Simulated scan of single mutants.
Amino acid sequence: MTEQPRIPLSRRRVLRAAVALADRDGLGSLTMRRLAQEVGVEAMSLYHHVANKEAVFDGIVEVILGEIMAAVEHAEAPPPERDWQAALRAQILAARDVFLRHRWAPQVLESRSTTSPLVIAYYDHVVAVLRAGGFSYDLAHRALHVLGSRALGFTQELFTPDSAQPGEAGAGNGAADAGGHTAADAGAAELMEQMADQFPNLAGMLAEAVHNDPDGTLGFCDDQFEFEFALDLILEGLERRRTAGH
């Protein structure tokens, strides 16, 4: 039997393996030791390609953003000159699809202390769509503030039951049990119980939200319907401001 050639270790291979490990076992599983096992080498071999665990996090942000840029490029949308709302909506939902494949990724992206050039490139593309749609630079600037992380396909919600940092044990890593329930689900339920007497209106609202969408998508309240509902409100409001000369 012919032995299969060994794939040489590279930074790209290490980072792809890190993404696969986080997808399969959750962000909390992403240690240098586990990553070395994933690619079949000794842990010391990794340091020729990634300096440390933080470098791995920086690298997987690059991988995810690269996927987003590719998804945006292939998204089906009209030219922004003809319909900027549809063009930007398609771009944002294409980016969101990538995050839905890697549900831990928003947490890592928001934890970085420096902004990736790929994030800047993405937002430059957003501004290009707005400008092609007739926005002044001033209104485009305001639009970016309104959209925030929603422009990338996810939102930072008001109530997040799990606030641990990336890499900490059990930290919001998206790992689910056999029934698909995560630690965040348990935290959400506990939070609502604690709130019920003191804050009955919020507790009732959140209980109904979780009941109507038990699976969620990228966060506690950030489900697809709510995301698209808010996105459409923003785009419609921006169009009114654009046509009125803001």
Results as ranks from 00 to 15, higher is better:
F57G: 04
F57Y: 15
T115Q: 15
T155A: 15
I68H: 07
I120P: 05
R112P: 02
E67P: 03
T182R: 15
A86D: 03
A75T: 01
S136G: 01
D162Y: 10
L158N: 12
N52M: 10
A140V: 00
R82F: 04
V61A: 09
F154D: 04
P161C: 06
E54K: 12
L158S: 14
A143G: 00
A183I: 10
D138N: 03
G180E: 06
T114Q: 13
Q165E: 12
R89Y: 12
R103K: 12
Q107F: 12
R150T: 06
A94C: 02
D97K: 14
V127R: 15
V50S: 04
G59W: 11
E190D: 11
P106G: 04
A86F: 10
G180T: 03
S163R: 14
D124S: 14
A95M: 11
D58E: 14
H125V: 02
Y47K: 08
T182V: 08
H145T: 07
T115L: 15
D162A: 07
H102D: 03
A176L: 12
L46W: 04
G167I: 08
D83G: 01
F159N: 10
P80R: 08
A143D: 00
A75C: 03
A70L: 09
W104N: 04
R96K: 09
G180Y: 10
W104E: 05
S111W: 14
A86R: 14
A71P: 01
F154C: 03
R112I: 02
V119K: 12
A86W: 11
R89C: 01
A164S: 08
P80E: 05
